[in-house]
Design a protein around this nucleic acid. Structure first.
Lengths: 351, 351
DNA sequence: AGGTACTGTGGGAGCGCTCCCACAAGTGAT
DNA sequence: ATCACTTGTGGGAGCGCTCCCACAGTACCT
């Protein structure tokens, strides 16, 4: 209650003003040194730095945030329940990349889960309060209102996996098209002739691009594209199994399958087994994601690896650039950017 | 819905002052309403709330933090590399508990990894800047300077697992002593007579307490405590195996083992197998932690479960209480608290 | 000599809040 | 009537920064 008046002028944390007095310069000069402005003479800079060290000065983030209208923090928003976050290696890889990109920055990372309605409510409040300078968005569903909310609030955001070909947000994605081509070209090079494709959920842009890659790879190799060899799946194991059954019925002569995810491939594998087809002898199988499933499948699954950690790093770099671009000092306008990272085919025994 | 119309000065967000003007009251009154002070008449409160809604007012966190000298955020500090965080269920359980306790609060949770030296450096800077109101500390090693740093900075902190019997920080722990007793009493009740104990790292307080529990349980059941039956381990699988080998050599007549962790038990199991002992027929085995290992072991391992999620919740509640206690409005001084939560024996086939 | 450009510096004016003092108005006791 | 409270309210004085304008000093032109 008695905390009125001079709040421990001797015991409290030193302020800019105190550092300035100690160094025998003005407040503005100390601020310039702290913020690395080039407009300070070498001698002055040294004096200020000495004073900072002597007093153990640490800038007050709140004051800075208030005056400069920034927070020096970005959020990684995961619109999933925490469980998935811990279960799927995707997120930990992503987090590692983000962390790496941030490690030589002043930026603080906030991890925000928005799986439940309640959490989403909180998040909305949080964003409305502009408590972060930017947002990294991963694993966003097509109809999620989050991206638009961010646009409206004018909060810089980068999304992993654009929602469509003309995504308005800056995005980073792996080369779904190229990855699919790699898979199919690999199968062709192994002498497979009748290559089927079990797609992902086609309202996911990436899944669509994989179909495009599949088609073009066949076409360019001079193979006809038979629409009967394309069966929609939904990234799930069950979907993979059903799709495989349908394919076997329609084209029992197929000798290879490219599945849009490892999980889908696992489902397809079951259906193949039940139909008495051997992998890879009768039918070669290729998945997508190079997840743990791929390594542990029997036989181990050839799969397309996405550079998730790199994606995290790239997303962060792009976001930081956008954030920097909003600062008063910035001049040029950044154009919309869509970055695509190369995939890699990991060959295993299934093909 | 009206929030688009009144966008006034260069797209800025409404301020307290603007809300006050709109509601026809003073700035102080709006502040009181926002902060739920009881000293506001019903009519005024309603008018202010209407104005807040109409303008879509959201408090500026930075301004609040600066004026009130608080951040409305706490950190969960994990002094481990990220990998462990994602691998061990301990952390996700803990996080769930913390999240639950925070969910009806204004508090924001920050997740901070401090595994590498570099990260620790950052953390120190972060804490020095008082960017959080309080800190939750999990998995702290005995010689970690972090707790002292927090005391010095006068940042409220709660630690999971006290470092010693007279831990200076508020702490939450599971009942290591009681858990060990449960394990040993269970073995006794199953008719086991010669019960060995493989300890954890004895510089960890909790491990020490488990030894105490082991001793007391035997003593109270009228069994002699044979020091030759106590073999130090280090929580690792390899340590468990070596300890088991030593024990088998010294006391080949033993018929039960209480291991200080599931991982240790896994190591012990290997040594037992190699010595041709059957579990549980020849030797009963009990672990500690009730981790995934326990469930998947062959045979499934009886183990002592710690209520980790509850611990997270309790830690958070205690921390919030301490933080509230530092606020200017608070009067009473909180005493140092050490909370201990009960464990539960999960019986499986190994005993 | 004056003009025009820099570079480096000090410090005023806020940023949007919270805290607290002052004070009006109401209540009930003398 | 006065006094002593209480309740509700307005608004000043900061919190510790950043931004930016003013201005001294120096340099290099015409």
């Amino acid at each position: 209650m008695a905390s009125h008046g001079v709040r421990g002028r001797s015991g409290g944390r030193p302020t800019l003003e105190e550092v300035a007095a100690r160094a025998g310069v003005g407040r503005g000069t100390v601020s310039r040194v702290i913020n690395g402005s080039p407009r300070v003479s070498e001698a002055t800079r040294a004096a200020v730095e000495a004073a900072v060290a002597e007093l153990g000065y640490v800038p007050n983030t709140a004051a800075r945030a208030l005056a400069a209208n920034r927070t020096d923090a970005i959020a990684l928003v995961v619109p999933e329940p925490e469980t998935r976050f811990f279960t799927e290696p995707y997120f930990s890889d992503m987090l590692r990349g983000v962390g790496a990109a941030l490690s030589d920055t002043e930026m603080q990372l906030l991890l925000i889960f928005a799986g439940s309605d309640r959490e989403r409510q909180r998040l909305a409040q949080y964003l409305a309060a502009h408590r972060v300078d930017g947002v990294l968005l991963v694993s966003v569903h097509a109809d999620d209102p989050l991206p638009d909310m961010l646009s409206q609030l004018e909060i810089p955001a980068v999304i992993s996996g654009p929602r469509s070909a003309d995504e308005t947000l800056t995005s980073v994605d792996s080369d779904n098209y190229g990855g699919a081509r790699q898979a199919v070209e690999h199968l062709i090079s192994r002498g497979r002739r009748t290559i089927a494709h079990i797609t992902g959920r086609l309202d996911v842009y990436g899944a669509e691009r994989r179909v495009d890659g599949y088609r073009d790879a066949l076409r360019e190799a001079g193979h006809p594209v038979d629409e009967l060899l394309i069966e929609p799946g939904d990234f799930s194991e069950d979907g993979g199994r059903r799709a495989m059954e349908a394919l076997l019925e329609r084209r029992p002569d197929l000798d290879a399958v490219f599945a849009a995810s490892d999980v889908t491939a696992a489902g397809a594998r079951q259906a193949l087994r039940e139909a008495g087809r051997r992998i890879p002898d009768d039918v070669a199988l290729v998945g997508y994601d190079d997840s743990a499933i791929a390594r542990h499948m029997e036989p181990p699954l050839t799969s397309v690896r996405q550079p998730i950690e790199e994606m995290g790093r790239a997303m962060t770099d792009l976001l930081l650039a956008e954030v920097a671009d909003r600062r008063p000092s910035a001049t040029r306008e950044l154009e919309r950017r869509q970055m695509v990272l190369a995939t890699e085919l990991v060959e295993r025994a299934s093909s």
